[in-house]
């Protein structure tokens, strides 16, 4: 990116993952700078979601290691990784506001704030809710919200914990096309504010290119027709997706020449 430090923020080094004898991923190498938005696309069963689970540290790779900001490889999900799944990403027994507060309070010994902390956290949660446009439903339970609102809440909750990277696993997969478009705008705005490093798995190529700075394509480089599961997938393409996929060209150059009205 324009002049930023070339120090890579997330590195995945020679990642192999197999379930039993069945290889899922092989030889995955990728480095990501801080603040980049990485879209991950690929056919079903090509290890996109497995790679995301590895980034999340929900699973550990059979070989290789993933480091965030140079820290040793994580053994379980933690505060440095935020996540939003397609479903079940908010807590149904908490109100919308409580869900946001949980983003800060769950790290405490008993998982709740008391006294002055509680008041301050509630105020911060209200600010967050106003920013993500959910302040009018603060006291409702998530089940009463639409799918798009639930996902906005899930993203807001994940960001309330201030993670180093945000992982999105087909976050808009269950939404209707209109809601999906408004969620794209929402995510773009939020990202402009926070400059968060984001990994997003998606089925939708257009979405991947629209939102991502880079698009990683997962596919199987080798294919045994008699045994489709013999080889795992890896990153086969790494597109630069800035400016609609043509990052170093502008349709119109900015020439500072006066133009006729």
């Amino acid at each position: 990116m324009d002049g930023g430090q070339p120090v890579s923020f997330v590195t995945a080094e020679n990642i192999f993952q197999s379930y039993g004898a069945r290889p899922i991923l092989e030889r995955v190498n990728v480095t990501v700078d801080e603040g980049e938005f990485i879209s991950i696309v690929g056919a079903s069963g090509c290890g996109k979601s497995t790679f995301l689970r590895l980034l999340l540290a929900q699973e550990r790779p059979t070989r290789g290691e993933i480091r965030i900001a140079g820290a040793p490889p994580a053994v379980e999900p933690g505060l440095d990784r935020g996540v939003v799944f397609q479903k079940y990403s908010v807590f149904p027994h908490m109100t919308v506001r409580e869900n946001i507060v949980a983003g800060e309070s769950f790290r405490t010994t008993w998982g709740v704030f008391s006294g002055a902390h509680k008041k301050a956290a509630r105020d911060r949660a209200d600010d967050t809710l106003a920013r993500i446009g959910l302040d009018h439903v603060a006291d409702q339970y998530p089940a009463t919200l639409s799918g798009g609102m639930q996902q906005r809440l899930a993203i807001g909750q994940a960001l309330a914990a201030k993670p180093r990277i945000l992982l999105l696993d087909e976050p808009f997969g269950a939404l209707d096309p209109g809601t999906r478009l408004s969620m794209h705008d929402f995510l773009t705005e939020l990202r402009a504010e926070t400059r968060m490093t984001v990994f997003m798995v998606t089925h939708d190529l257009e979405e991947g290119f629209k939102l991502g700075d880079r698009v990683l394509v997962f596919d199987k480089p080798r294919w045994d027709p008699t045994d489709p599961n013999a080889y795992g997938a890896t990153i086969t393409y790494d597109f630069d997706a800035r400016d609609g996929g043509i990052p170093f060209q502008r349709i119109e150059e900015d020439t500072h020449v006066l133009r006729p009205a």
């Binding site: 999340l56 929900q58 379980e76 999900p77 933690g78 505060l79 990784r81 935020g82 996540v83 799944f85 479903k87 079940y88 990403s89 908010v90 807590f91 149904p92 027994h93 949980a102 983003g103 769950f106 790290r107 405490t108 010994t109 008993w110 998982g111 709740v112 899930a154 909750q157 994940a158 914990a161 993670p163």
Partner: peptide
């Protein structure tokens, strides 16, 4: 209880105790 919900709580920094008390028990 969906695994996603437990993992989400983990990414919010919740310990096993907090997950048991704040996520699992109320549900």
């Amino acid at each position: 209880i969906p695994r996603e919900m437990i993992v989400k709580a983990e990414t919010l920094g919740a310990s096993s105790l907090v997950i048991a008390l704040r996520v699992v028990l109320p549900q």
